[in-house]
Design a protein around this nucleic acid. Sequence first.
DNA 1: ATCTTGCCTTGATTTTTATCAATCATTGTA
DNA 2: TACAATGATTGATAAAAATCAAGGCAAGAT
Lengths: 233, 233
Amino acid sequence: MRREDSEIVRELPLFRGVELENFRTLIAAGYVQRFPTGTVLIHEGERPDFLHVLVDGQIAFFASHNDREATVSILTPPAAFILAAVIVDGPYLKSARTLSSSTTVVLIPAGAVREVFERDTGFARATVAELACRYRTIVKELKNVRLRSSSERLANWILTQASQSGGCGTFRLPFEKRALASRLGMRPENLSRALAELAEAGVTVDGPMIRVGDAAKLIAFSKPNPLIDDPTS
Amino acid sequence: MRREDSEIVRELPLFRGVELENFRTLIAAGYVQRFPTGTVLIHEGERPDFLHVLVDGQIAFFASHNDREATVSILTPPAAFILAAVIVDGPYLKSARTLSSSTTVVLIPAGAVREVFERDTGFARATVAELACRYRTIVKELKNVRLRSSSERLANWILTQASQSGGCGTFRLPFEKRALASRLGMRPENLSRALAELAEAGVTVDGPMIRVGDAAKLIAFSKPNPLIDDPTS
DNA sequence: ATCTTGCCTTGATTTTTATCAATCATTGTA
DNA sequence: TACAATGATTGATAAAAATCAAGGCAAGAT
């Protein structure tokens, strides 16, 4: 593993509190892999062999049932994933596929993770914090789905994205529109229509570029709620 | 606190591994309260003062936004709740109201919980397991919402309920139909209609009594999926 | 340059779900 | 016993979202 990659892992809140010796054990057992776009890294229902850390690129988590497919979340680096499955040693509930070329992932054997978890209280504590945050993130997502229409979800997503991409009000979609549609629980056709509707709220679209012309107007339409939209709350 | 109540708490997976001394500290700091139907115990957005343990009765967790209300989950005893909010010391993401008369709750001050969490590795480990399971439960619920129609959700809920209520295929709804409707993400009107449709799958309804006449038929309609429906997976 | 491919968009239609309105049943109360 | 009050049901209608069917556009291939 390149020093660069292991340092990214080390800087994650999940690993920052791990004793150096234990961290080295984890890194020694782990390795790096790089994948092209569209690779399915994880298959729903299988058993977790590795704790994964996304170092570069993007990953979509999705689930399939009944000829339908739903994107549950999209992960951006750096971030660990499938921690819960590794901890309870239960089957994956979601599949994962890469959304960008040369997506880089660090793989740490599940057994090593569980061993260090047992003897390193710093890691155990960080695991609790990580799981608690993940849990709260999904609760928010469930509220998002149940309490909002699809165009409201879109409007709030744009608002969040715009504020994260610096103040200028213009940003580039970080992935394809159909991935966004699935992430927001809508069909690509309806995403197109919803984007067109948002012109009334001052949002203009040019290919992958989104411009929030009038933030106040978009906020009035979106009615953002920190208990749904604020990732830090 | 009655010995009876503290023993229920002690038997929970979350507390079973706590050192006796620490457990006594928690119980000494805690107390019991009993509430009538419809009491809102917890208000979305407020800060957690207590870890709660449901000892008797039923509690619905719901969230409000935009003149809408959605039930996120319904809890049956014995079970601890709002653990994640206590751990991260973040605002409640959901409100909670009692669904049954004389709902009994044990309240343990959040500070005491955090203190014991810091020094008791058994508790820390149990917390991890609890949070990981909760996380996975919500992932399943999100899949349930995103991958199924409302009548499919209903059919699978009935299937689960029937199997948990012993083999006879008849059971009583554990709460009012409108609570069930909200739990399943549908309107009471549509729950009525969906129940009527399920007659084709051998389900008969008489007030609060549900009878699964032909399990095979209902399974064929429901298409249950352990990665959504199995609470233990 | 032309063609193919994949993605996005647009319009028409169907399905699903919510909403509105009215009625019925049950329960607890005066 | 009659009488609210509450919850459940039913029917009619509206809104939201999915589906089906064409086209359009741009990037890469031939």
